[in-house]
Nucleic acid binder design. Structure first.
Lengths: 151, 151
DNA sequence: ATGGGTGCAAACTGTTTGCAATCTG
DNA sequence: CAGATTGCAAACAGTTTGCACCCAT
């Protein structure tokens, strides 16, 4: 299930001169056991950890998240909730995209290989090493479409 | 050039029970005269306005931006700069997407009709009225690819 | 004239940073 | 043992909110 066993994590960190710490392990563990489609904010992650008795600072959570985003392990999602959410960046095969209602924040997922292929093609054409490919659709869901106040 | 002449803006606002104010006009004007590919933060917009002698509060800028995003006139971009940027939400024909380097924040634009079509299809299939469709690619540009420190 | 809109200043939230202590390789 | 990493608390940036006044409709 876990896409990043700890041995791999250590190897990947060391390759860049970073170290494997219990905190980093724990954080990755949480993401690995997260059901498909769930995503966490930094605070979510922090309370998930402290609730299971871990001793970890919020700033470590932020630092680790950034590290993992830059290494391509996590994807950073900016949906409609006002703060960023994170989830495991799985290989393009099980990649999914998001459709968000700007009124009620209902979020649907969908996958579309075509989009991922376009992303890869574009990135390649300008020599980028691609970390993540996100198609996000903003709209109004059927429920909210019935004349809702805007502000 | 301007996709939203003031008459249209007034009509669209009034249809929802909102009013056309000088501030709202000025804000939309700025976006309409912005060169293709440029996008502004709320602060950018505010200083652009005050520098031309306008008298407008920062909170009005925020409120107006939100209004226009919800009405589908503006698109909200969350690229890599740390704060949100906005640009005119042009019709899908001249729609573009973004490719961002997570190290240096270099941002490239590209268009891809295929993606917009996928977006429309997906939205339609779940009954959403679509406001915006953004494909964002995160990666490492050729310059930064040469072993850069992550933190 | 009614109620939406504005500006100001204060409050807030999520995130970042400086630093001394700690742990990894 | 050097240097990366941590936790804490304080600082920060961008954004939101309460309120009295103002102005479109």
């Amino acid at each position: 299930m876990a896409s990043y066993p700890n041995a791999d994590l250590r190897a990947e960190l060391n390759a860049h001169g970073y170290r494997l710490t219990p905190q980093r392990q724990k954080i990755l563990d949480i993401f690995c056991t997260l059901p498909q489609g769930r995503h966490l904010s930094a605070e979510d992650l922090h309370s998930a950890l402290t609730q299971t008795g871990e001793r970890i600072g919020l700033s470590t959570v932020y630092r680790t998240i950034h590290l993992m985003v830059y290494m391509g392990m996590l994807r950073e999602l900016e949906l409609a909730e006002g703060h960023k959410h994170y989830e495991l960046n799985r290989p393009l095969r099980d990649h999914h995209h998001h459709l968000v209602c700007v009124y009620c924040n209902q979020t649907l997922e969908f996958s579309e290989d075509q989009v991922d292929q376009v992303g890869e093609k574009q990135a390649k054409s300008v020599g980028y090493y691609i970390l993540d490919c996100q198609l996000t659709l903003y709209g109004i869901c059927p429920n909210c479409d019935v004349q809702k106040p805007v502000l």
